[in-house]
Design a protein around this nucleic acid. Structure first.
Lengths: 222, 222
DNA sequence: TTATCATTCAAGCAACCACTTGAATGATAA
DNA sequence: TTATCATTCAAGTGGTTGCTTGAATGATAA
């Protein structure tokens, strides 16, 4: 070979980073961190064309972050490496800690009022065991159905207003969604607090909870 | 703004990943993980032209991974975010676990014979406390002088042969270098084992040791 | 001031990337 | 077999990236 082993290694490592270096692929990874899925479904969720999604997914596969298998006519993709969740989380942490743009956007989501610190997953687990908390899963129904934190109630942002009258204003409400790239929980918390509820986000999302080794409820499909 | 907050966030996260997506920048980060340094020194170590290194460093700075300050005529760059070390490590782990090319290259470094599993840093710390191990730092002298594991002996690959007669063949030898992208320790272990010594690598390198919160010796400069 | 040195900037070029479009493949069902 | 459906491939386009070269900046020392 004409290049040194060191250069060859660095090229490979950079190749993995390259796979993470496009918004479209981060979105796909976020979806795949919820549950495995076929190309068409991923394309619909992410707003990409099918051909484009397919190409991005192949790039993720070449980087070793994702695998695929055939199921009839469909090809099902899923995360290949659990570390992908860690990588995605670190990316967002670095960005939030060091890029002013990011803190601006996140502040904007809270609608003026400062958002409270998110609760750690460990602390949430304790509170859940004590029954001292309302847990809301702010994701689309199908993702909730594919797995959620036991005891969570599924509600989309659009339907949140309708739920308000039935929530106890004295009990703390915790919201979570897909993970560090998902803004639903931020928005839900902002709205809940506008209405006087005690609401906070959970740190991370379902993939991080699962990665902790905590229980995930998968309801029987009918 | 014409784009949704979600898209804007993803663009920023992808921007951080983009910063990691070039071999040249990974090399610069590896160097900066050893110790802060000026542009010219970094350019020399990495083999980049000064202008090129400067541009890459600015890109790392825009991504929040690195900061700089002026010191006289020179501009000193250093890691801004400790999580950068974690990101670099995860990248290499994912690559090693999932890319056949990478395992091929690493196997090649061991020169035929299979390399033993590296020792964890925790285990090494115990062994060091017990004095039951020889620790070799396989980095250039200046990097050793900027900080190293207490008790380590500095030896470059080129000088390793000369050291062999003075090493005890019964005591286990542990080698480390810059971190997951550095191949010196791999090569040193391969040579030592060819000569019949009991040698293994330490997992990670000095930056990871430091990140663990373990003691780093910085000898007084003369 | 002027000269020197380290770094950064600006322009230019080849290589690469994301996305689109339309055709090709591969599996299933009629 | 043929028709259908999900996915992948192939080619083309505009925009971006990495590197080079040579000039410009900014700090120091004579």
């Amino acid at each position: 070979m004409s290049t040194s082993p060191k250069q060859a290694l660095l090229r490979e490592y950079a190749f993995v980073a390259q796979a993470l270096a496009a918004p479209a692929r981060l979105m796909l990874l976020e979806q795949l961190a919820q549950t495995e899925a076929a190309v068409e479904g991923l394309a619909r969720k992410t707003g990409l064309t099918v051909a484009n999604a397919s190409q991005h997914l192949q790039q993720l596969r070449r980087a070793g972050l994702v695998t695929s298998r055939r199921a009839g006519k469909a090809v099902i993709y899923r995360l290949q490496d659990r570390r992908a969740v860690g990588l995605m989380g670190l990316l967002s942490e670095v960005a939030e800690a060091n890029l002013a743009q990011v803190t601006d956007i996140l502040d904007g989501l809270s609608g003026g009022a400062p958002a409270p610190e998110p609760i750690t997953r460990a602390a949430l687990a304790e509170r859940l065991a004590a029954g001292a908390v309302i847990l809301l899963d702010i994701r689309p129904e199908d993702e909730f159905a594919a797995g959620h934190i036991p005891g969570a109630r599924n509600i989309t942002l659009a339907d949140l207003e309708r739920l308000l009258p039935r929530l106890d204003p004295e009990t703390e409400i915790i919201a979570y969604c897909r993970g560090p790239y998902c803004i639903y929980a931020h928005q839900a918390v902002a709205r809940l607090r506008q209405h006087g509820f005690k609401a906070r986000r959970m740190q991370g999302g379902l993939p991080e909870w699962r990665e902790d080794g905590r229980a995930v409820r998968i309801p029987p499909s009918l």
